[in-house]
Each structure stands twice: as C-alpha cells, then as structure tokens.
Amino acid sequence: MKFLTPKNKSQPNSESLPQSQPKKTSSSILELLAQWIVTLVSLPVLFVSYIVAQFVTPGTSGYKLVGAIGFWIGTLLSTDSIWQVLFQGKPIFPWFETEWIGWIGWLQLPFNLLFWISFGISALVQVMEARTLRGKDPQQARNEFEESKQYTLGTKPTGNIDLTVALWGDYKRAGLKERYTGGAIALFFWLIDIITTFVGRWPFQYTNPLSIIACFGYNIVAMMAGEIGYSIWKLTK
C-alpha cells in the first residue's frame, strides 16, 4: 500500500521562479540601455566641458597656451606703439589710423631689424610690468617675513663714532635699496608703455565721443594684454 507524502507548504513554489527571472533580466537590459542613451546624449557636452577645462585650469596645456597667446598678442600690440614713436614707422594695424603698412608691409616686417628691436623692447616692457602685477607668492612673502624677524635690531647707539651710527642705519635699512630700486624700475617701464601707447594713438584727436572712448579702451587693452598673458603663463611654470 502506497503512502502519500504531503507537500511542504513552507517550500517555495518552483513554478514561480521561471516567471520572476525574465522580469529581472528585462529590467537590467532596460537600465543598461538607458545608461547608454544618457551617455551618448551627454558625450558632446562632456567633451566640450573637458576642452574648456583645459583652458581655464591652472597647470594644463591649454592654460599655458592661453597665457602664451595673450603675451605674444599683447607684445605685438605694444610693439606697434614703440615702432611708431621710437622709429617713426608706419602703423602696423589699421584701426584708429588714417594709413598703415598694409599686407605687403606685413610681409616685409620680418626682414626689418628695427621692427625686431621694437618687439624686443616691447617684450621687455611687458615682462617688467607683469612682475609688478604678479607680486610675490604668498608662501615666499611669508618665508621672507619669518626670516627677517630673526634679526633683532638693537637700540640706536649713542656716544659712539659716526661710523657706528651709520652702520647701525645700514643694518636697519637692509634690503630696502633693492626694494626701492625695483619699484623705480617698474615705474620707469610703466611710463615708457603709457607714453608710447598714447603718443602712438592719441584718443583726443577725434571729435566723436564714441571714437575717443574706443581709442582709449584700445590703448588700455594694448597695455594690459601682454602683462596679463605673461602673468597667466608664468603661473603655469
């Protein structure tokens, strides 16, 4: 006689397993497909963002390129003023001018020694001005300050020969001559840049207020472009 064994109700129904498996598989496929679609749609945006980041992030190749381009363009703009004022050359660029060297003159410039002298003077002016714009690195300034504090100045000597008092004064003013000289040199180069820029293109030769403002703004850009470009490029070193 056969005995029937009752089914264990606690065991899962084996017939329901094949039904849940296809649902999980189809859901995974849809999720993967959605991820691929989002990635493909956002790929151009991510690519453009990466390119822009290369030009605005310090230390990257694009950042260095922006600084180098700004320096050379600014130097060339300043060269035009030096070329006109110091060597009486025709304007290199046509804007705010009644006549200029023209495209044929541009082809002849690389063979003109005076142009390269003007370019060298302009580059020197841009570099010296950029040093005043950049200033010192905060860490460098802190180190110099901490180093200077270790030298304690004694009271001014009395009852000694004049040489002792003079040497005490040298000790007190140590390093200030270099500081003042550097400031005077920077001021000298700024004056050269301002004079050559505004003599080369005098804004008040025009009667139209818009032309005066435009020429004045161009002169400011011509003066600052090289310094800012050099400062950006120098920060990447």
Rank of each mutant, 00 (worst) to 15 (best):
T164V: 12
A166V: 06
A123V: 09
Y151G: 00
S148H: 03
T158G: 00
R173A: 06
T152M: 04
W190M: 10
V127C: 11
I161R: 14
P138E: 02
Q139W: 11
Q140F: 15
Y171D: 04
S122M: 07
D170L: 13
D170Q: 13
L167Q: 13
Q150E: 01
L187K: 06
G135T: 05
L124F: 11
L133F: 15
D162Q: 14
L167T: 02
S148A: 09
T132C: 04
S122L: 06
I161M: 11
G182W: 12
S148F: 02
F188N: 07
Q126L: 06
D162G: 08
P138H: 03
Q150I: 02
Y171R: 14
T152P: 02
T152Q: 10
K136E: 12
I185G: 05
G169M: 05
T152R: 09
T152L: 06
Y180E: 00
I192P: 10
V127M: 12
R134I: 13
I161N: 15
E129N: 14
I194L: 15
G183Y: 09
A130I: 05
E146N: 05
Y180D: 00
L163H: 05
Y171T: 10
R134S: 14
G159D: 07
T164Q: 08
G159F: 07
L187V: 03
K156Q: 08
K177V: 12
L163A: 02
E146F: 06
S122C: 09
Y180W: 12
L153E: 02
E178T: 02
F119C: 04
R179F: 15
L176A: 13
R134D: 07
L176D: 12
P157I: 00
I161W: 12
Q139E: 08
I121Y: 13
G120H: 08
K177L: 15
A141H: 05
S122A: 14
G135I: 03
N143C: 01
I192G: 06
A184I: 09
V165R: 09
S122T: 07
I185R: 14
G154S: 06
D193Q: 15
W190S: 07
I185Y: 14
I194S: 08
G175W: 09
S122V: 04
L167A: 02
P138S: 03
A123I: 11
K177A: 12
A166K: 13
A141W: 04
